[in-house]
């Protein structure tokens, strides 16, 4: 009876997984065919006329438009995640030592972009940029920098939220011990605090990257003249794909790019899982060693 339940549960899980992956997998299957739409398998060319070809991949490598969008996306994601991580980590560290009321105010404001709708963040920033540009600078402010600010607003609060719990776990006496041992405050921060909150900083950074990669609305509102081309507006993968699927099917070259994105994402997920498993094993053996050492020290005393 229990096994029947388990079979039912497992099939429920796998059916849902299949449904979630189906659209992406279909795109990947059709990336080996030169048809313009999904569902029509064009034959007559490729291996033995079966339609199995790598033409779409060739087109992908030749496409300047996609190359530029991809480059922009990566540059924006990395730079905004770096700035967001710096700002958010510093904010969390500073707020940790502030008075309770100051911290509460900062945390309340920090929560606004987290719960707010993206479209409001985008609209309000854009209106402000236009206003400031008209009144103070007398020029159009929209550029890479406005886009960067937009993405940082989106992601820095999440970095803050990721770093904060790690700070709360810190042993405050370690920092004071470092100061007593003649370390300057900045050295103590670098050598004592940063290494301990590093996991929080890293997960904040990864989250910032994923938010930036996924963003459409803020990019569409706040981007200015192109980053890699120097003209038009900055096109990222999101805005590029959106402009295409609004009118028709996903461009054939994007199907090929989907294959690569999918492989990359799955690779990262597998790597992350293995890394976590190894760390968990090593961590447990390490802590048991420490426990033994502690026990020994206790016994000696």
């Amino acid at each position: 009876m229990v096994t029947f339940k388990k079979v039912l549960a497992q099939s429920f899980i796998w059916i849902l997984l299949a449904l979630i992956y189906l659209p992406i997998l279909l795109l990947i299957v059709w990336s080996f065919n030169s048809s313009t739409v999904l569902g029509v398998w064009q034959t007559g060319n490729g291996v033995n006329g079966s339609g199995l070809t790598g033409e779409v991949y060739e087109a992908l490598f030749r496409s300047e438009e996609i190359g530029r969008a991809l480059g922009n996306t990566v540059i924006v994601a990395l730079s905004s995640a770096t700035v967001a991580t710096l700002l958010g980590t510093m904010g969390a560290m500073g707020a940790y030592y502030c008075k309770r009321r100051t911290t509460a105010i900062i945390e309340a404001v920090n929560q606004i972009p987290v719960v707010n709708a993206e479209v409001i963040i985008a609209m309000s920033l854009t209106v402000m940029f236009v206003m400031v540009g008209n009144i103070i600078f007398h020029e159009n402010l929209f550029s890479f920098w406005t886009l960067l600010i937009g993405h940082v607003v989106l992601s820095a609060p999440f970095v803050y939220l990721n770093v904060k719990p790690k700070l709360l776990q810190l042993d405050p006496s370690l920092y004071e011990a470092a100061l007593d041992l003649n370390a300057t405050p900045s050295l103590a921060v670098r050598k004592v605090i940063i290494p301990q909150i590093l996991p929080g900083i890293l997960s904040g950074f990864m989250l910032a990257i994923s938010l930036s990669l996924d963003d459409f609305i803020v990019t569409a509102f706040t981007s200015g003249p192109g980053l890699l081309s120097g003209q038009g507006t900055i096109v990222t993968l999101s805005t590029y794909v959106q402009s295409k699927i609004k009118k028709g099917p996903v461009p054939a070259e994007m199907r090929a790019l989907t294959t690569f994105i999918f492989l990359l994402v799955v690779g990262i997920a597998v790597g992350y899982t293995i890394f976590n498993n190894v760390r968990a094993k090593r961590g447990s053996s390490h802590s048991s060693k420490r426990a033994k050492a502690l026990a020994r020290a206790e016994g000696r005393r």
Binding site: L38, D214, L237, I245, T258, I268, A269
Partner: peptide
């Protein structure tokens, strides 16, 4: 536990692209 991760992995693929994929599948 890997099954849980499998449900999260698609979130890392650009959501506009996923929407496009869904649109094509649905129109098929």
């Amino acid at each position: 536990y890997v099954l849980v991760i499998l449900f999260v992995v698609p979130m890392w693929i650009n959501f506009v692209l996923r929407t496009g994929a869904m649109k094509e599948m649905l129109s098929w």
